[in-house]
Amino acid sequence: MLLRMLLFAWIAASLIAGFLWAPLVPVLGDTTRVFYFHFPAALLTCVAFGWSMLHSVLYLARRDLGHDAQAAGAAELGLLFCVVATLSGSLWAKAMWGSYWNWDPRETSIFFLMLIYGAYLALRSALDGEARRARLAAIYSCVAFVAVPFLIFVVPRLYFSLHPEPVLNARGKPDIDPRILLAAAAMFVGETGLFAWMLALRVRVARLARAREVA
């Protein structure tokens, strides 16, 4: 309980820091603030999907349904953060590029990620029997594991991007004000805590549901 209060206080504090303490980037103006939602959510999407894949592989190796609950929960939550990142990015694109969506490579890759994990969850809903569902979903997750690097790193290279450079640019040092970076990093830490808490809940619910089925 205390931990949860601390978590919410931390997220609130990082948001306030982002809005009041960190400066605005000259050209971007007020749209700088989208960064505090967009960047941590996008990073967390990768963490969540990576976590899901890791547990899918672990499930295939060890056949422990706990890994399956982790994989499914992380995929659901990752999709949630993916939607946050996409929507916030789209709003920012409307303000800066003049349209909500124009198939910029970054938009394309995150859209593909949403499609893949939407398909993963649709597949789960169509499989009967928890062992079979866990096994086949884990196999699909491994297939996605092959596709995702291509979708994120290779396919976008075929096109030209307008997306701002990654935080660490080619010269290896951050271009933006350290205060902005600190606020975004704090937000990321807070959201990671949120993710861990929600995932733990989701895994516990799955375990209880399984226990009730067995009983």
């Binding site: 593909f112 499609l115 893949i116 398909a119 649709a122 597949l123 169509a126 996605a144 596709a147 396919v155």
Partner: peptide, 12 residues
């Protein structure tokens, strides 16, 4: 389900 599940991984 096949089209929905296979298309995302066929996009590359």
């Amino acid at each position: 389900l096949f089209a929905a599940v296979s298309l995302p991984v066929l996009l590359p």
